[in-house]
Computed example of a mutant assay.
Amino acid sequence: MRQKPSRAVYGLLAEFPNADSLCAAAKEARAHGYTQAEAYSPFPVEGLEEVLGTRRSWVAPATLIGGVLGGAATYFLQWYAAVIDYPINVGGRPLHSWPSFIPPTFELTILGAAVAAVLAMLIQNGLPQLYHPLFEVEEFELASRNRFFLCLPAHDPVFAPGPARDLLEGLHPMLLREVPA
C-alpha cells in the first residue's frame, strides 16, 4: 500500500485576544520545553521577551564599534593628510592642529554609529524578508492591528505535531492553524 507524502509544516499558530493571554500561553509553552517559540503582537508586551527567553541584542555593541571606527578613521585621515602626506604651514600653527580635526571627527563618528546601528538591526531582524510562511495564514495580518499570536515552529527540538496541538488547544486560543512550510 502506498503512503501519502506528509505535508511539510512550518509550525502551529494560535491566536489570542489580549496580551495577558499571550504571555500566559508563552509561559506554558516555555514550561513544556519550547525554546524557539515566536510571539507576534501589535505593540511591545512587557515581560514577553523574558518569558520567551530571547537572546540579547547586539545592536548596541555594533553601534559603539561603528562610531569608534568612524571617528578613528576620520581623525587618522585628517592627521595623515595634514602631517604626513601634504604638510602645509598655515599661520605658524603646528601641523597636527587637533582642534580643527574635531568637528569632522564628531560628524563621522555619529554617521558611523548610525550606519552600523541600522545594518545591525536589519541583519538581526532578518530583513529584508519578502516572504515568511506565516504570511500564508489569512488571519495573521491582524497581528499588526489588534491580535496576539504564538507560533510553535517545527524546527524547535521538542516539537511534535500532536502534543503541540494538544498544548495549544488547552490554552483556549481564538484560532489554531497549521502553518504550511
Score class of each variant (00 low, 15 high):
Arg2Leu: 01
Gln3Arg: 14
Pro5Asn: 05
Pro5Gln: 06
Ser6Lys: 13
Arg7Asn: 07
Arg7Lys: 13
Val9Phe: 02
Gly11Ala: 03
Gly11Tyr: 00
Leu12His: 05
Ala14Pro: 03
Ala14Tyr: 07
Phe16Pro: 08
Pro17Cys: 08
Pro17Asn: 09
Asp20Gly: 12
Leu22His: 02
Glu28Ser: 15
Ala31Asp: 13
Tyr34Ile: 05
Thr35Ile: 12
Gln36Cys: 05
Ala37Asp: 10
Ala37Arg: 09
Glu38Val: 13
Glu38Pro: 05
Phe43His: 15
Val45Lys: 04
Leu48Gly: 05
Glu50His: 08
Gly53Ala: 07
Gly53Gln: 12
Arg55Gly: 10
Ser57Glu: 01
Trp58Ile: 07
Val59Arg: 01
Pro61Gly: 07
Pro61Phe: 07
Pro61Lys: 03
Thr63Glu: 01
Thr63Arg: 03
Thr63Trp: 03
Leu64Ile: 12
Ile65Glu: 01
Leu69Cys: 14
Gly70Gln: 09
Gly70Ser: 10
Gly70Leu: 11
Gly71Phe: 11
Ala72Arg: 03
Ala72Pro: 07
Ala73Phe: 11
Tyr80Ala: 13
Ile84Lys: 15
Ile84Thr: 14
Asp85Tyr: 00
Tyr86Gly: 00
Asn89Val: 14
Leu95Thr: 15
Pro103Tyr: 12
Thr105Leu: 09
Glu107Met: 11
Thr109Glu: 08
Thr109Lys: 06
Thr109Gly: 06
Ile110Thr: 08
Ile110Met: 09
Ala113Asn: 06
Ala113Phe: 02
Ala114Pro: 03
Ala114Asn: 01
Val118Lys: 01
Ala120Thr: 00
Ala120Phe: 00
Asn125Val: 00
Pro128Leu: 01
Tyr131Thr: 10
Phe135Leu: 13
Glu139His: 13
Glu139Tyr: 05
Glu139Met: 06
Phe140Cys: 02
Phe140Asn: 05
Glu141Trp: 04
Leu142Glu: 15
Ala143Glu: 05
Arg145Phe: 12
Asn146Ala: 11
Phe148Asp: 05
Phe149Cys: 08
Leu150Val: 06
Leu150Gly: 01
Leu152Ile: 04
Leu152Gln: 07
Pro153Arg: 02
Ala154Gly: 04
His155Ser: 10
Pro157Asn: 03
Val158Asp: 05
Pro161Phe: 02
Pro161Trp: 09
Gly162Ile: 11
Leu167Val: 03
Leu168Tyr: 06
Glu169Ala: 14
Glu169Gly: 04
Gly170Tyr: 07
Leu171Tyr: 10
Leu171Pro: 02
His172Met: 07
Met174Leu: 15
Leu176Trp: 06
Leu176Thr: 06
Leu176Asp: 09
Val179Lys: 03
Pro180Gly: 13
Ala181Met: 12
